[in-house]
């Protein structure tokens, strides 16, 4: 990224190749919308180009990328406050949709249920779980991205897990 900052814009392509799936996954788990997530990936990379001078190089590139992605998400939610939850749940259902064999069906349905349950978490809880579980970031890294202590991150993950569990249990009943 420092090379991009210095003016070697072609290096951005390399960064894209390396991180686009990861970033897309994060955005997908936050929005449950494929197209929207793709658009947001585009936005994040555009912002990284445009504001490349703000990258100091003191932190990890990936942390910077996530903080930009979080800002893009915040902008999106601010603009479409009410849509998100509704669409999110619907989208989760469409993932589960389609004809599948019986055995696999139950498993798949359970996964979809769980995914739906995650959609009912608050944005910050979903975010912290997405970062830790899907992105497989260490608590210390998450702490850097979110700007909190490692201990706080651990407690928040635990609370989010408890909340998710109770939502999931309610849904199963």
């Amino acid at each position: 990224m420092l090379k991009v900052k210095a003016g070697d814009l072609d290096r951005m392509g390399m960064l894209f190749e390396r991180y686009n799936r990861q970033l897309y996954g994060f955005l997908f788990h936050m929005t449950y919308q494929r197209e929207l997530s793709e658009d947001m990936v585009q936005q994040v990379f555009y912002k990284m180009l445009k504001y490349r001078h703000t990258f100091t190089g003191t932190g990890e590139y990936i942390h910077w990328m996530y903080s930009i992605a979080r800002n893009v998400l915040k902008d999106h939610w601010r603009k479409n406050k009410q849509q998100v939850q509704h669409e999110g749940v619907e989208a989760a259902e469409t993932i589960a949709g389609g004809l599948v064999p019986d055995e696999a069906f139950e498993k798949k349905q359970a996964k979809a249920e769980l995914h739906r349950a995650m959609g009912k978490l608050s944005e910050s809880q979903r975010e912290i779980l997405a970062l830790s579980r899907f992105q497989e970031l260490k608590c210390q890294e998450i702490a850097q991205i979110l700007g909190m202590t490692e201990g706080t991150v651990k407690v928040r993950i635990h609370r989010a897990m408890q909340e998710l569990k109770s939502i999931y249990v309610k849904m199963e009943r």
Binding site: F28, R34, Y46, F134
Partner: peptide, 26 residues
Amino acid sequence: QLWGHIGQIETPEPSANMSVKFYAML
């Protein structure tokens, strides 16, 4: 157990379109 289940949730792949768009933007 829940943590394990979450891990099984698939993350869809971005379409090829995304990368085309990216390079156009670049």
